[in-house]
């Protein structure tokens, strides 16, 4: 099967003028400006198969948007190569434009004072769609995204959630094979986020669309994606399936115990008490030092159990931990100390 995206050692360096400090230096820079190079993306490589839903995650300034811009053809890389649906994005931008959809959470392709239906109609013309085919696709998507009541209202009258659903419909109207979504749930409330996640998931499952999804919300990642690429300081830190990520990096578990006795005396290496209330004890376990079974047996020896739940810590904690490790690694690398285990 043909690869949807293949990035090979993509790099992007930007040159910018160094801001002068002080009035004298500012004057000097009028005729002798000083430039410095900033590395935004530093040798990113990955491969995405058709139909995959991949979260592209990283802290601000990690290089996510720059990578997406290179893959959608709107930015030339400084070095490296990429193939998106068989096209070199920055050389065959126009060809590729017909086959990809883009949703940028903070940019709109809808006309503000007009109903979204008018923008949809225009997009049909822009993407050279046959009229009847376009109308059919539009009505399918409008139904699937539950927008029938909203697309006749001027966009300015729509809520943020409705508007974002319209934006996603707009990016899917030309039936792209691959959709880049850059923070599509930014600023939305819980209900609107859930609605968008579920329609995206459904859409991808039904039509086999490949999704590359950037978000700071790990909920988006967990609800929609099956694989995650974590990027930090322009480099791929982790490229794994979500399940594998949990297995590899989640070396902790949350254990909640409900007991008949009001309190259970417990001191065991590798456990940390998160909350202790009458008849309820919440523990965080370090799986490298203690097993769940060991803790449960110990508690059962000292008290009668009513209920117990074992869960993973939120994905957000995993990501935070990974960023933290990467930061430490970078700091140590800067000091010249080799640090194993933090690289991709």
């Amino acid at each position: 099967m043909t690869t949807a995206i293949e990035a090979r050692q993509l790099c992007k360096h930007f040159t910018s003028r160094r801001r002068a400090t002080g009035l004298g230096a500012a004057f000097r820079q009028l005729w002798a400006p000083v430039y410095h190079e900033h590395v935004a993306v530093d040798g990113v490589s990955f491969r995405i198969e058709p139909g995959e839903r991949v979260a592209f995650v990283g802290p601000n300034g990690a290089g996510k948007s720059t990578t997406i811009k290179m893959l959608s053809g709107i930015l030339h890389p400084s070095s490296g190569s990429a193939s998106v649906l068989g096209h070199t994005p920055w050389r065959e931008r126009r060809e590729l434009a017909y086959r990809i959809g883009t949703v940028f959470g903070q940019r709109s392709q809808l006309w503000y004072h007009l109903p979204a239906a008018d923008s949809f109609e225009l997009l049909g013309r822009i993407y050279d769609r046959e009229r009847h085919e376009h109308r059919q696709r539009q009505s399918e998507l409008v139904e699937r995204f539950a927008l029938a009541q909203d697309i006749e209202k001027p966009v300015r009258e729509l809520s943020l959630g409705q508007r974002m659903r319209c934006e996603i419909v707009a990016s899917l109207l030309h039936d792209p094979d691959l959709v880049f979504l850059d923070e599509p749930t930014i600023g939305l409330d819980v209900t609107a986020k859930a609605a968008i996640r579920s329609v995206l998931l459904e859409q991808s499952r039904q039509d086999g669309k490949t999704l590359l999804f950037t978000s700071h919300d790990t909920g988006d990642m967990e609800s929609v994606c099956e694989r995650v690429i974590i990027i930090h300081h322009g480099r791929v830190l982790v490229d794994q399936s979500l399940a594998e990520l949990r297995r590899t990096h989640l070396r902790r578990k949350l254990l909640v115990l409900h007991t008949v006795e009001p309190a259970v005396p417990l001191t065991l290496a590798g456990t940390r008490v998160v909350a202790c209330e009458p008849h309820r004890l919440e523990l965080e376990l370090d799986l490298d030092r203690v097993a769940v079974e060991q803790v449960v047996q110990l508690v059962m020896a000292r008290a009668r159990l009513r209920d117990l739940t074992v869960s993973d810590p939120p994905m957000e904690d995993v990501i935070r931990e990974l960023y933290g490790r990467a930061r430490n690694f970078s700091a140590q690398r800067a000091l010249g100390a080799p640090t194993p285990g933090a690289g991709p």
Partner: peptide, 27 residues
């Protein structure tokens, strides 16, 4: 340049690209 070759469209219906000013009139 494209070792993998362009990915085929699922529908098997290639997009017909029209030249002319139609889309500009629509805008």
């Amino acid at each position: 340049e494209h070792p993998l070759g362009p990915c085929p469209r699922r529908s098997g219906d290639p997009v017909r690209r029209r030249r002319g000013l139609g889309k500009h009139f629509a805008i």
